[in-house]
């Protein structure tokens, strides 16, 4: 009985640890009515270094250059696992069945257009400074609209 309860505790504890790591979604959307640009990044559950590097570069770009826009709600950031059932609708909408980076333009709370930057992201990720500079420029350009 004692052994059984021990194994049960271990099972629950390790399960919590595993899922705790895999469900690390980040969604920052402070005021949807003010939203002008949303940056979306989707990833799968078992991630490679390249996919993680894209996310790291994306976070660096946003948090080092657009913290003000994040806080006032003109910029939104969404980083989600595309393999989770709860994200199925978003995955279908953005054709994001694997690692996908997209930027979307909003006006009056409505999504106007979306641009897929996945191929670009995989090309630029080996050079973080280029990745960050170009993404920053892209977001700035969209924020002007």
């Amino acid at each position: 009985m004692k052994t059984a309860s021990l194994f049960f505790t271990i099972f629950i504890f390790s399960g919590l640890l595993t899922f705790g790591q895999k469900l690390g979604d980040t969604i920052i959307s402070n005021d949807s009515t003010k939203l002008r640009v949303k940056v979306l990044y989707f990833h799968i559950t078992d991630r490679c270094n390249t996919c993680k590097s894209i996310e790291a570069n994306l976070r660096k770009t946003i948090f080092e250059n657009f913290q003000f826009q994040l806080d006032n709600g003109t910029l939104g950031l969404s980083i989600q696992n595309c393999e989770l059932p709860r994200n199925a609708a978003l995955v279908k909408k953005y054709d994001a069945y694997g690692a996908t980076l997209a930027v979307t333009l909003y006006k009056n709370g409505k999504e106007l257009q979306s641009e897929d930057l996945s191929n670009w992201a995989f090309q630029k990720v080996p050079k973080p400074e280029v990745f960050i500079a170009e993404l920053k420029s892209k977001i700035n350009e969209l924020l002007k609209n």
Partner: peptide, 14 residues
């Protein structure tokens, strides 16, 4: 043509 991004987007789940 670099199809890496498309590969990462679709090869596993689509």
């Amino acid at each position: 043509t670099d199809l890496t991004g498309d590969g990462f987007k679709f090869a596993k789940n689509k």
